[in-house]
Design a protein around this nucleic acid. Structure first.
Length: 420
DNA sequence: TCTGGGGTCCTAGGACCC
DNA sequence: TCTGGGGTCCTAGGACCC
């Protein structure tokens, strides 16, 4: 059996932890740039606020109805997430952290006669008490089914946050009530194609021949079908697997036409990407840059430009990464367009230890680069000074809006909560 | 005026090899 | 006029996820 533990309205629940005055208030949390809604408390959902809805469309009505809004505060959410995951790890060491707010527990090593419902309620209670966020738990023979069980636990009040799919009849009954678009792994395209051939709910999907479906669609669908039938075949097991790519990208606060400002943004993202890369203890061989116009706008001429370069030898040196990023920008920039987003993507990683050096790469240079980068990272970490490479600029015209951010209650000593 | 950001995995097709 | 067959590796792009 597998359990999926998922925090309810995670970001919104985080915002409530240190604000008891918000207990029963509608709360939404916005994406970067205060662009659209990415989390809603139960009260906000009741008001009809939709996921990913653009903020400007609902702002005035939502606020006049007493709604509360926050810009996203990832430093805070990441810290709360760690606390949730640490608590879970104590309860079940076989854990796959799947995203910031959910984790799979592999219960196959548990004793056979353990009361899973009881275990789940204990889990829930402990996380609520120790960390302060509510979670829902779904348990089933496969990960895909545990996802569905979790959804039932969340949506159907009778389950009180815990659903265990054990009996076949109950599972089938619920599968029949589940639209295929709600099945993990079935997205927009697949659900459209499946509905065209008359497959509408999860039960019908589970009755398809897995191998045939695999040949006609993809192995992903084949695995999903097998999982719906109770045969575990999706393995995560990526607990300590290193990342394969690092992306840093942002939309600008407003449209940008100036090449200079694009250079600032690209330098800024490249700096950040290099930091993340060093934090992962990896080096990259491939740097990709992209710039694009606002794809929602029919006012501006559309453009998407991207290009990558291979490095002669792997690096995590900010100077090289920033310089290469700006070289690419020079190659892809075209005048006469209004850009709304830029991004830096690092990939093709090698481990810091034991990789092939190029013929012309001198060990001495590598050592001095690593010392310099280490120093830079320390200066930043200890907030001794602001430091970075390339033309980072002072204008900040492209930086994002984030006007309603809460405090870093748990990670900054100057912002800890006060009790008066 | 204002529509997120960061990931993974799979596949088709090209390049290349014998 | 007639121009093989089978394999690997790599990459860009699509689909999906939260």
């Amino acid at each position: 059996m597998f359990a999926l533990v998922d925090c309810n309205s995670f970001y919104a629940s985080c915002e409530k932890i240190f604000r008891p005055d918000l207990r029963n208030k509608p709360i939404v949390v916005l994406s970067n740039n205060d662009g659209c809604v990415i989390a809603r408390s139960a009260e906000a959902k009741k008001m009809g606020i939709k996921m990913a809805q653009p903020w400007y469309q609902i702002k005035s009505q939502y606020l006049s109805n007493g709604g509360i809004v926050f810009s996203s505060n990832y430093e805070f959410y990441a810290d709360i997430s760690n606390r949730v995951m640490n608590t879970l790890t104590e309860l079940c060491p076989e854990i796959d952290i799947y995203s910031i707010d959910e984790a799979f527990l592999d219960l196959r090593s548990f004793k056979r006669n353990i009361d899973l419902v009881r275990f789940s309620y204990d889990c829930r209670k402990r996380i609520k008490k120790w960390v302060g966020v509510p979670v829902s738990i779904g348990i089933a023979p496969t990960r895909t089914l545990s996802k569905l069980a979790n959804k039932v636990a969340k949506d159907d009040k009778r389950f009180e946050g815990v659903a265990v799919f054990e009996r076949k009849e109950i599972t089938n009954y619920l599968l029949k009530k589940t639209d295929i678009a709600d099945v993990w792994g079935i997205g927009r395209k697949l659900s459209k194609r499946l509905k065209e051939i008359g497959i509408n709910n999860a039960f019908e999907l589970s009755k398809l021949n897995p191998r045939l479906a695999g040949n006609n669609f993809s192995v992903v669908l084949e695995k999903t079908i097998r999982e719906l039938r109770g045969e575990p075949c999706i393995n995560l097991n990526n607990i300590n697997e290193p990342k394969k790519q690092i992306v840093v990208s942002r939309s600008f606060g407003r449209g940008v036409t100036s090449k200079d400002i694009l250079h600032e943004a690209v330098s800024f993202h490249a700096n950040r990407a290099a930091e993340k890369l060093r934090h992962e203890k990896q080096k990259c061989r491939l740097i990709t840059i992209f710039i694009r116009s606002n794809r929602f706008s029919n006012r501006v001429k559309q453009i998407y430009a991207s290009k990558h370069i291979n490095l002669i030898h792997p690096t995590s040196d900010s100077r090289i990464i920033v310089k290469s990023a700006n070289q690419i920008l020079n190659m892809i920039y075209r005048e006469g367009y209004e850009y709304s987003k830029a991004g830096v993507l690092l990939s093709d990683f090698v481990n810091n230890f034991g990789y092939q050096m190029s013929l012309f790469n001198r060990a001495k240079d590598t050592a001095s680069s690593e010392r310099l980068m280490k120093t830079v990272d320390q200066i930043k970490l200890k907030e001794i000074a602001k430091i970075g490479f390339g033309n980072l600029g002072f204008r900040n015209t492209w930086k994002m809006k984030r006007q309603m951010k809460s405090k870093r209650y748990t990670t900054n000593i100057n912002e800890i909560p006060f009790v008066k």
